[in-house]
Write a protein that binds this DNA or RNA. Structure first.
Lengths: 112, 112
DNA sequence: CAATCTATATTGCAGTACGATATAGCAAGT
DNA sequence: ACTTGCTATATCGTACTGCAATATAGATTG
């Protein structure tokens, strides 16, 4: 279980990272996140789908409907060139904040 | 410059971490963050003060007014026992998300 | 006495996580 | 036939919060 804010900060980077490995549909992405986090990242539909729509509206991902062999049809997403670029920005920002926290959580002398 | 969401996720941990080193007043905390981040963490008053009030309302910090020798009086904050406990939770949550991102950003085989 | 720095506070807007709810295809049990 | 449960996507409403804008005020410099 992670805080709402931490979820908010990591949602986009995680989804874009998953899609940078290959296309996937929404429900699949939720399960991948659940597996990757060993059950800690429990996104609900009300969290993921609006995000996917926002990412598509921003041009970071593109979508295509495909029928399923067993069950309802799926909307498959791919990361765009722009999305890949934003992911790189997200990565460096995350690393930036992480290094600040590491300074604060490191030995006392680190703070000056 | 960090995204709004990343700011949101790191604000509380950073403030609590700074206070865990010793008491400080609001304006001082803003400057400490600016220094620590080498100019990247630019919190404004509209961001910090409401946060401090929320943290105090939650019992994570306590405050005391003290006069300044040069300028307006200052409200000094200290971290409470509860605040220190929440900080530990924040730390482990951050590390948890960080490790998920490291899996995704590591070598291809890491995703399975 | 105007401008600037220090120091805190509050209002209003905009963005968003998420519970709740709706829809629909498929499979298995009773 | 009917109910339950899993798959799969969508949307509404609520609550929270970062932050620009604005206000107040003490101290210092030109």
């Amino acid at each position: 279980m992670f805080s709402k804010q931490l979820i908010a900060a990591s949602l986009q980077p995680i989804v874009l990272s998953i899609l940078s490995r290959g296309e996937a549909y929404g429900y699949e992405i939720m399960q991948r996140a659940l597996d990757l986090s060993e059950g800690k990242l429990i996104w609900t539909a009300g969290t993921l789908y609006p995000l996917m729509h926002r990412l598509e509206a921003k041009g970071l991902i593109s979508s295509i409907w495909r029928p399923s062999e067993s069950g309802p049809r799926r909307k498959y997403y791919r990361i765009t060139v722009k999305g890949a670029s934003v992911l790189e920005t997200d990565k460096s920002e995350w690393i930036g904040v992480h290094s600040i926290l590491m300074k604060l959580w490191g030995p006392e002398l680190a703070i000056g």
